[in-house]
Amino acid sequence: QVATSTVRILGMTCQSCVKSIEDRISNLKGIISMKVSLEQGSATVKYVPSVVCLQQVCHQIGDMGFEASIAE
Score class of each variant (00 low, 15 high):
67 E>K: 14
72 E>T: 13
13 T>Q: 07
5 S>K: 08
49 P>Y: 07
27 N>K: 14
38 L>K: 02
10 L>Q: 09
46 K>Y: 10
46 K>A: 13
45 V>W: 04
44 T>F: 12
56 Q>P: 01
52 V>M: 07
47 Y>T: 01
50 S>C: 05
47 Y>L: 02
29 K>I: 11
44 T>N: 07
60 Q>R: 08
17 C>I: 05
29 K>H: 10
63 D>W: 10
51 V>M: 14
8 R>C: 11
62 G>L: 12
2 V>E: 12
71 A>C: 11
23 D>W: 12
63 D>Y: 11
2 V>N: 04
24 R>V: 09
32 I>C: 05
71 A>D: 13
58 C>S: 09
42 S>F: 11
63 D>L: 15
38 L>E: 01
31 I>D: 00
4 T>H: 07
49 P>V: 07
62 G>M: 15
21 I>P: 02
10 L>I: 09
32 I>G: 00
59 H>A: 13
59 H>I: 14
14 C>D: 06
41 G>H: 13
31 I>L: 03
2 V>I: 10
33 S>T: 07
18 V>Q: 05
48 V>W: 14
58 C>P: 04
46 K>C: 15
66 F>N: 01
8 R>N: 09
38 L>G: 01
14 C>G: 05
66 F>E: 02
32 I>E: 01
24 R>H: 10
70 I>S: 07
43 A>L: 07
37 S>T: 07
7 V>L: 15
72 E>P: 10
31 I>A: 00
27 N>V: 12
72 E>C: 08
51 V>F: 07
22 E>R: 04
23 D>V: 11
52 V>L: 10
66 F>P: 01
65 G>E: 03
30 G>I: 09
65 G>F: 05
5 S>Y: 06
39 E>H: 11
6 T>P: 03
7 V>W: 05
62 G>R: 15
13 T>V: 12
36 V>P: 00
56 Q>T: 13
27 N>T: 12
42 S>N: 11
70 I>D: 04
26 S>K: 10
48 V>T: 08
71 A>M: 12
72 E>W: 10
45 V>C: 05
45 V>T: 01
63 D>P: 03
18 V>W: 06
64 M>R: 01
15 Q>N: 10
61 I>V: 04
1 Q>A: 06
11 G>F: 06
25 I>C: 05
30 G>K: 04
58 C>N: 09
59 H>N: 14
39 E>Y: 09
65 G>I: 04
6 T>W: 14
35 K>F: 08
28 L>Y: 05
69 S>L: 08
44 T>M: 12
70 I>A: 08
18 V>L: 05
44 T>P: 01
67 E>A: 11
21 I>D: 01
13 T>F: 15
42 S>K: 12
36 V>S: 00
53 C>N: 12
56 Q>D: 12
50 S>F: 08
48 V>C: 10
51 V>A: 06
69 S>Q: 10
12 M>T: 01
36 V>H: 00
11 G>L: 06
30 G>P: 03
50 S>Q: 07
15 Q>I: 10
36 V>M: 04
46 K>G: 04
62 G>N: 15
28 L>E: 03
67 E>T: 11
38 L>T: 01
27 N>E: 11
36 V>T: 02
71 A>F: 11
66 F>D: 02
69 S>P: 03
6 T>V: 13
25 I>R: 02
10 L>E: 08
52 V>T: 06
6 T>A: 05
37 S>H: 12
55 Q>S: 11
40 Q>S: 12
66 F>Y: 12
58 C>V: 14
63 D>N: 12
34 M>S: 02
31 I>Y: 03
57 V>F: 03
50 S>M: 07
16 S>T: 14
9 I>H: 01
66 F>L: 03
56 Q>C: 09
31 I>V: 13
67 E>F: 14
59 H>Q: 15
52 V>R: 01
31 I>F: 04
37 S>Q: 07
66 F>H: 01
26 S>N: 12
8 R>W: 15
30 G>M: 07
24 R>F: 07
10 L>P: 03
21 I>Q: 00
51 V>E: 13
41 G>F: 08
13 T>E: 08
46 K>V: 15
61 I>Y: 04
16 S>P: 04
64 M>K: 02
3 A>F: 15
31 I>S: 01
70 I>C: 14
61 I>P: 01
48 V>K: 09
57 V>N: 02
25 I>W: 03
19 K>R: 14
72 E>H: 14
6 T>I: 13
30 G>C: 08
53 C>A: 09
35 K>P: 00
19 K>I: 10
44 T>W: 13
33 S>Q: 09
69 S>H: 12
18 V>P: 11
10 L>W: 15
35 K>V: 11
19 K>E: 11
68 A>I: 06
50 S>R: 06
58 C>T: 11
53 C>S: 14
22 E>M: 08
58 C>M: 13
69 S>I: 12
17 C>H: 15
53 C>L: 09
59 H>S: 14
11 G>A: 03
6 T>K: 10
23 D>I: 10
42 S>E: 12
9 I>Y: 01
32 I>Q: 02
42 S>G: 06
33 S>P: 00
43 A>Q: 03
14 C>L: 04
58 C>I: 15
67 E>I: 13
41 G>Q: 14
65 G>R: 02
47 Y>G: 01
22 E>Q: 08
72 E>A: 10
41 G>N: 12
63 D>Q: 15
7 V>E: 02
46 K>T: 15
14 C>A: 03
37 S>D: 10
36 V>K: 00
9 I>L: 03
57 V>P: 01
47 Y>D: 00
25 I>A: 01
48 V>N: 15
21 I>H: 01
9 I>A: 00
62 G>V: 14
5 S>W: 07
41 G>C: 10
53 C>G: 10
39 E>C: 07
25 I>H: 01
13 T>R: 15
45 V>H: 03
57 V>A: 01
31 I>C: 04
2 V>S: 10
19 K>D: 11
6 T>H: 10
35 K>N: 07
24 R>Y: 06
29 K>S: 10
46 K>N: 09
34 M>Q: 00
10 L>H: 09
48 V>S: 13
38 L>F: 11
20 S>E: 14
12 M>S: 00
49 P>K: 06
71 A>Y: 12
59 H>T: 14
43 A>G: 13
9 I>S: 00
37 S>F: 11
15 Q>R: 10
44 T>C: 12
72 E>Q: 10
70 I>H: 06
7 V>G: 00
23 D>T: 11
70 I>M: 08
3 A>P: 02
4 T>Y: 11
51 V>Y: 06
51 V>S: 04
70 I>Q: 05
29 K>N: 11
30 G>E: 01
57 V>C: 04
24 R>P: 01
35 K>S: 09
70 I>Y: 14
12 M>I: 05
5 S>P: 02
19 K>F: 09
67 E>D: 10
26 S>Y: 08
13 T>S: 09
56 Q>A: 12
67 E>M: 12
64 M>T: 02
62 G>S: 15
4 T>S: 07
64 M>D: 02
23 D>C: 06
58 C>H: 06
11 G>I: 07
20 S>R: 15
19 K>V: 09
50 S>H: 08
28 L>D: 00
54 L>M: 10
12 M>F: 04
27 N>G: 12
10 L>K: 13
28 L>N: 02
56 Q>K: 11
56 Q>G: 04
13 T>C: 06
34 M>Y: 04
55 Q>I: 12
64 M>Y: 02
46 K>L: 15
57 V>E: 02
67 E>L: 11
54 L>R: 01
23 D>N: 13
21 I>L: 05
65 G>D: 02
18 V>F: 04
46 K>H: 11
47 Y>A: 01
18 V>E: 05
33 S>G: 06
37 S>P: 00
25 I>Q: 00
67 E>Q: 12
46 K>I: 15
60 Q>Y: 14
13 T>H: 13
48 V>Q: 12
